Each structure stands twice: as C-alpha cells, then as structure tokens.
Computed example of a mutant assay.
Amino acid sequence: MKLPVMPPVAPMLAKSVPTIPPGASYEPKWDGFRSLIFRDGDDVEFGSRNEKPMTRYFPELVEAVRAELPPRCVLDGEIVVATDAGLDFEALQQRVHPAVSRVTMLSEKTPASFIAFDLLALDDEDYTGRPFAERRAALANALAGARAPIHLTPTTTDLAVAERWFVELEGAHLDGVIAKPLDGTYQPDKRVMFKIKHVRTADCVLAGFRWHKTSTEAAPLVGSLLLGLYHDDGRLQHVGVVGAFTAKRRAELVEELAPLLLGEGDDHPWQEWASAEAHQGQRLPGNVSRWNATKDLSFVPLRPERVLEVKYEHMEGTRFRHLAHFVRWRDDRTPESCTYEQLEQPLTYALDDIVPGLGAKAG
C-alpha cells in the first residue's frame, strides 16, 4: 500500500458544545465505530479511533470498498449497523469477535454500512491541508456513483435545518449534530470540530454497586452505581450505571451506602441474576464483559430504597446508551415513582429518509 496519507492515522475529533454554532457545515452525528478507510487497489484497511485495524471484522465492507470506491483513496467515516428501527449499536458491538466463523456469520446476519463524511486523500493528492468545503466537494464527486453499503452523509450550511435534524434524527438513534468549520483543515487527533449531543435527566432507583478496580479490603472504593427503572408491571429494569467519581467520593460512598446493604434473608429484585443461566444472551449487571472475558462485572446488591437524578444522552431499547452521570440524590422521591413514563420519547425517523438506501436492507 502506497498512498499520500498512510495508516495508522488518528481521526480528527470534536469537542462538545451546548448549542449548534452558526456559520459552519452541519451533518448528523452517526452512532457507530469511527473508521478511516485506506484503499490502494485491492489493498484495503479499516483504521479505528485507537489506530488499530478493524479490517478483519467487516469482510462485507472490504468487498464493497473494492467495488464502490475510487481505486486509491483515504476516507473518514462511521461503520454502522442499520435496522428498520434505526441504528443498532449493540449489534455493531457483536461484530467485533475473535472467531473467524462468527465474523463470517455476522457479516451475513447483521451486515454493516459505511457512512463517509470526509476525504483525506484521492489518487496521489493529499487533501488534509485543504479546507473542509473543498474536501467535501471532492468527496461528493468521488462517491457520486457509489451504492449501498457505502453512503455519503448529508450536509447542510443552513442552521435551521441543522436544528431540525438535532430534534428529528434522534428518532433513528442518531447521536446529535456535528459542526465543521468550512475553512478548517483535517487535523488528526485534534478537537477542531464541534459536537452537539442530547442531554436529559432521569430519576432512577439505586439497586447496587460495583467495587472500583483499585479497591482493596484496607481501602475500599465504590466503582459505579447500578440504576433501575420500574416497568408498568412492577419489574425493576437495570438501565445502566453511574461512574466517574473522584477517589475521595468513591471512599465516601462506601460508608454512605452501607445502610442499604441486604440483611440476612432480604430479597432483591435482581437476585435471580446470580444464576449463570440467567445471563445467556442478556445484558445483566453480573454478566461477563463482551470485551474482556476475565473482567469481573459482579455487583453488590442494595435495598432499592434511594433515588438519584442522573444525566443521560439517549436510550437504546430499555437502557441508557452511554454512561450516565450523577446529578444529586432525590430523597424527596419514592423508588416506585421512578418509571419509564418520565423519559422523553423522541420522534421516530426512518434511516432511509436521511441516507437513501441505508435502512432498506435491514432484516
């Protein structure tokens, strides 16, 4: 492989801002795996944010790149799995597997798509020093004849359209909006773009905690708090965790949570999850990590009597998509009042309306 821009390359990054800035190019923020494609003839490599190759996990995209992209190019974009309901990040996570047989099976069962949104090189030309407006025009021209599963992300310079996207596209499980300076160059590993993401709050039941990885018997530290919400039928659903505490606060939580520890004979709504069989095919608090089979995800159950307010971005099914953040204790709320009804429901939106053909192959 011999290209004007050679792997590995760390992708250009974005910093969070609270509102959509004026005077930029706007595009949807796709919720997938960030990836750079390097193609030189039949040689194809998919880079990642940590600069490690992801090529082996997406054989169907390697073939699509050879069929649909210019013979020599470097593109920046996002690998996603699209379904009729929108983007499916959990299905995408399942694609990263060490077994070749499973990778092959999943490439057929949950095929991925690539959404291109920047151009680093084309033929013998290095585009990284050119303004984004010029890179975008060259990218659109290079992908003019590309077919699924290779797609070009939509863009606009109309702030009103970007604001509408921010509201509407969440219903297809998109992450928000990206704003790029029109005159900005491509700067690897630099936060020179802007991302605007949804942030909401919810009151959740505290139902357990995990010990921090540095916790010891002499110096115990709480790692994360396990959150629950009640279904209409009275079941307490595990919805995610809160972490990112200071070391001082982790130590304080050990004493603060001690009165909630289960006593002899106390029941817990998640006690059946102690059984290994309960974890088959499910995401439960005591399950084994998909990324590290030796990682201990066991938890300490607590009586579900305290309520805390958390910040979250959006839901994926019945769970928070990302790590939630602690806001405050809500001792004025009863655990039973913490239900799914409090959550804001985004409008539904079809992926095919954003990028034609993206959701059409879902199955």
Rank of each mutant, 00 (worst) to 15 (best):
L152R: 06
I37K: 00
E316P: 07
D42T: 15
I178A: 03
E134R: 01
F209G: 02
D40F: 06
L206R: 02
F299A: 06
P111S: 02
T156Q: 09
L323V: 11
F320L: 15
V161Y: 01
D232P: 15
P269V: 07
E78G: 02
K109E: 15
R49E: 07
Q282D: 15
S101D: 15
A148R: 05
L351A: 01
P70H: 01
A274S: 08
H212N: 12
G286E: 04
F33T: 06
V300M: 13
P335Y: 02
R328K: 14
W211H: 05
P59F: 05
I178Y: 02
L229T: 06
G208N: 07
G86N: 04
V222Q: 04
F114D: 04
G243W: 03
F166A: 03
S107M: 01
G286F: 06
T201Y: 00
A24L: 13
S224R: 09
V62C: 02
S289E: 05
R333N: 01
T19H: 11
L253W: 13
S35K: 02
K197H: 05
D84Y: 08
L13T: 03
G317E: 15
R328Q: 14
E344K: 07
N292Q: 12
K361R: 10
V192L: 13
G145D: 09
F326G: 04
V9N: 03
E125W: 06
V81R: 00
V239G: 03
N141V: 13
G359A: 02
T201V: 04
T83I: 01
R290V: 11
P71V: 04
D123T: 10
L169I: 14
A362E: 12
E45L: 13
H325P: 00
T318G: 07
L257M: 09
T214N: 15
L152N: 05
G208P: 07
E45P: 00
F194P: 00
G359P: 10
D126I: 01
E344S: 05
E108D: 09
V103L: 05
Q345T: 15
R164T: 13
A148K: 04
